[in-house]
Computed example of a mutant assay.
Amino acid sequence: MSYLSYLQSEIAEKQVQLIRLQSSLTKLEGIQNEFFQNKQLIDTPELSPATWEGELANSFKNIREDMKLAYQNLSANQLNTAIITMENKAQYLRYEIQSLEMNITQERHRLEEEARERRNTN
């Protein structure tokens, strides 16, 4: 396999990776939006002294508060970290693709120069 073919196959592979990563990123952002939209469901149904009170109600309210904290950690912190990591990887793949494209251009120029030199020597 020539160096030019190798570079072209590397670009193709990186482009497939980038497409897959962007698709996954879009899905993950959709999940994060869904999390944000459904956060209020933790407080449903609303509990008031008229509907439920006492030790079980207090225990249930504590569980809800723990759920809110866990929900916040998952939706804001963990998903944000995953999204940022994926965006960084996508940017790195774009950089790699650009670098490979520059290498292809350089290799084509080198091959053209070699061909010119061969024609001139003949």
Rank of each mutant, 00 (worst) to 15 (best):
S24D: 12
S24N: 13
S24Y: 09
S24R: 12
L25P: 00
L25D: 00
T26R: 13
T26W: 14
T26G: 12
K27F: 10
K27E: 11
L28R: 04
E29Y: 07
E29N: 07
I31K: 08
I31E: 09
Q32Y: 04
N33H: 03
N33G: 06
N33V: 04
N33A: 10
E34P: 10
E34S: 09
E34W: 12
E34K: 09
E34V: 09
F35R: 03
F35I: 04
F35Q: 07
F36K: 06
Q37R: 13
Q37D: 11
Q37T: 12
Q37G: 09
Q37C: 13
N38M: 03
N38C: 06
K39F: 04
K39M: 08
Q40E: 13
Q40A: 13
L41P: 05
L41E: 05
D43M: 04
D43T: 02
T44C: 10
T44V: 14
T44K: 08
E46R: 06
L47C: 06
S48Q: 10
S48W: 07
S48A: 08
P49M: 13
A50E: 09
A50I: 12
A50K: 14
A50L: 14
A50N: 13
A50F: 11
T51G: 06
T51N: 06
T51L: 06
W52A: 01
E53F: 13
E53R: 14
E53I: 12
G54H: 01
G54W: 00
A57P: 02
A57L: 02
N58L: 10
N58Y: 06
N58E: 09
N58C: 10
S59C: 11
F60D: 02
K61A: 11
N62A: 14
N62Q: 15
I63C: 11
R64D: 01
R64I: 02
E65P: 09
D66K: 01
D66T: 03
M67V: 14
K68A: 00
L69T: 04
L69I: 06
L69P: 03
L69E: 10
A70F: 02
A70M: 02
A70K: 00
A70C: 06
A70S: 10
A70N: 03
Y71L: 02
Q72T: 12
L74S: 10
L74Q: 07
L74A: 14
S75T: 03
S75C: 07
S75F: 04
A76I: 15
A76V: 15
N77Q: 15
N77H: 15
Q78W: 08
